[in-house]
Structure formats: C-alpha cells, structure tokens
Amino acid sequence: MTDEQTGLFELPQRYVDLQAEAHRLAASCEDVADRADEADRFDPDVRERLAASGLCEVVVAAEYGGRFEAVDSLAVTVVREQLAAVSDHLDSMFAMQGIGSFAVSVAGSDAVRKQWLPQVAALEAIAAIGLTEPGVGSDLRAITTTVEEHDGELVVNGHKSFITNAPDASFFAVLAKEDDGYSLVFVPADAPGVTVTTPHQILAPHVLGDVVLEDVRVPVDHRLGEPGQGFRLMLSTLATFRVSVAGASVGLAEAALHEAVAHATTREQFGMPLAKLGGVPASLATCWVEIEAARAITYRAAAAAARDPLAGLHLSSIAKVHATEACGRVVDRCVQVMGRFGLVRGGKMERIYREARPMRIYEGSTEVILDSLAKKLVKDLAQ
C-alpha cells in the first residue's frame, strides 16, 4: 500500500496534534472527574483547566478569537472523543460552547458576534441553546415560545425546558415562533424577564435547567439571521455538531473497555485470568470490533461535515446512531465482564454506564434519526 493510500485511513497531522492536546487536558482533569460528573453547576477546577487549555477556541471561527478559519466538525469530534473518555462534565462544557454559539457565529449581527464570541472562545461567557419545552421534545414545530417585534425591540415569551448550561449560561439562542415561521433570538441570561429554575436532573448529572421568558426585550439586532430562519440555523448547528456526539460515544466506549480489560487481566477465577475464561475473551474482542467500526464511520462523517455540513448530514446522523448504540452495547458488555465489580456504586464503571445512556437520546434520539434517514433513503432511491 502506498503512502498516499495509507493516508486515506489516517487523520491528518493537525488533528493528531489536536487529539494529543485534548488527551493532555483530559488527563489533567482525571483527579476531579468523579466530583465534576456529579455536579449540577460548572465545576470550577474543570472550567479553569479547560479555559487555560485554549481548546474552546476550536468551536469559534478565527475571526472572533477561534483556532481555525471556520468551525471544523472533525476537530470538534476528535477533541470530544478524548474528553468524554475521562469526564462527561468536561466534554459537555467544551461541546456546548460550540452548540450554543454556532448560530451566533453564522448569523449574528456584527455587534453581537464581536462582543460575545471572543468570550465564548476564552470560556469567559457560557453558551446555551433553548429549543425544547415542557411539552415539546423532538417535534420542535410544536413550540409555544413566541417572539414579536415592537418599537425596535424583540419581545420573547415562553418556557424552555431541559436546557443544558442553563444555570450558568451567559446567553441563550432561543427558538421561537415568529408570525408563520420560526426564528432564533439571542437572549442574554441577565436580561429582565429571564428566570432560570432547576426542576429536573438526569441519571448522569448535568448542568441543566428550565428557562422562563416573560416579556423579555432585546434589540432587533439580537435576532439571529432573518425572520423565519430559525430552523435552517438549527439544522446547520446539528449538521456541524451532531457527529461529535458519535466521537464522544467512541471515547466513552473505549474508556469502558479499558476498565474491563484491566479487570479481566488481573482478576483470577478457576485458576486463570478472566481474560482467558469462557466467553470473556470474545466479549472483549467484540467490544474492540464495535469501537473501531464506530470510530471509522465517525471520522468519515466528521470529515464530510467539515467539508460541507449540510451535504453530509445523513452521514453525521448515521454515525450518531451507530456510535451511540454501539457505546451502549459495549458499556453493558463491559459491566457484565466485570461482574459485581462493575456494579459498585460510586465506581468508574457505574459512572460510565450512566453517562452512556443519554447519548442515544440527546441531539436527536435514535428513533427520530432513523425515521429521517429512512425518508431520505426512500427519496434518493426513488429518483
């Protein structure tokens, strides 16, 4: 095989370097990961270390203090793979800076971008996006939050629920109905009429909250893009960041496998290591196979998204489904290999098990994504 052919299956050096940089940051947070991953507010040590690393620059364009000319899906994905292997809290803190600010990057007014995006890159401002509501999850066209333009201002009313980063957010990109369409509105967290509550928590604790907006007034230039462009901007965000969930899933699955292998090679039963006993070798090998397959489709999809996010959205969706579902199987299998030691309350394996489950739901549940993929498949083959 020629060097050129080999290169097709390897990350370019800049991503390898970025991977190593993210690995060093993750390793530096290992001592606080157990505590941070139980937190419902930003862990100060994790925030300080992430800010000092400069890695949040990856999710902002260079023009506004970012690392690359434009946000690069593959760069975000390889970083998340490393961070998620150590701390879900760290991974979420990094990823949400991009997910919450992307619509600002591509459609915000010059004034909003210049004021806020450099702060996002430096982790001085915390980004969040407000989509779901108490009665609305995947069917976002059913939202009841509204925005109206009055006397040179936008007036926002509504209730957003299960919003990541809400208790610590500096701003929200809020999806709202506007006339017959939907718009995204930039809302500073300290704007009068914004109230954040914390009525929910999930099995893998998260910085999570509800956001109530009562006659919140912001300047007209806080509308992101033109009126009615909300869903297009939201789709662009998904197209850029959805595949990174697959990267985080690969990292988490690999962390589980490392725990299982360490246990199986040191624990002896019936006079031999578990790694040589019964079905354990096959279980470990199957985990490895699933992880490498997931990594392959994830990197391919992320590279496609880096070139053209919307054109590669189907690949990002495929990678998200495949990697998150594989992660669930791998983690479950690793718990089985470890037996009662995989069930210990407060152990790393328990934390990994809880963190793996939400990945199949957020940023598009498996069922919703498969439904969209099926429609695209039928449409494409019918042409």
Rank of each mutant, 00 (worst) to 15 (best):
139 D>K: 15
149 E>Q: 15
266 T>L: 11
204 A>I: 07
204 A>K: 01
183 S>M: 09
290 E>Y: 11
117 L>E: 06
272 M>L: 13
34 D>L: 11
190 D>L: 10
168 D>G: 09
271 G>N: 08
54 G>D: 01
306 A>P: 02
196 V>I: 15
335 V>T: 06
242 R>Q: 13
163 I>R: 02
266 T>S: 15
114 K>N: 14
34 D>Y: 12
379 K>L: 14
343 L>Y: 14
104 V>C: 08
217 R>C: 00
307 R>K: 14
83 L>Y: 01
373 L>K: 08
119 Q>E: 11
155 V>K: 05
94 F>M: 07
231 F>C: 00
373 L>I: 10
355 E>N: 15
114 K>M: 09
324 T>I: 09
174 V>Q: 03
42 F>K: 00
340 R>S: 13
141 R>K: 15
98 G>S: 08
317 S>G: 14
380 D>E: 15
159 H>D: 14
31 D>P: 00
248 A>E: 01
230 G>D: 04
367 E>D: 11
85 A>N: 04
330 V>P: 02
325 E>I: 10
295 R>C: 02
151 D>N: 14
119 Q>V: 03
164 T>N: 04
287 C>M: 04
255 A>E: 03
259 E>Q: 10
364 G>S: 10
20 A>H: 11
144 T>A: 14
299 Y>G: 04
216 V>S: 02
29 C>I: 03
256 A>Y: 02
19 Q>W: 11
172 F>M: 05
7 G>W: 09
325 E>L: 10
288 W>T: 09
192 P>Y: 06
372 S>V: 03
173 A>E: 09
51 A>H: 06
291 I>D: 01
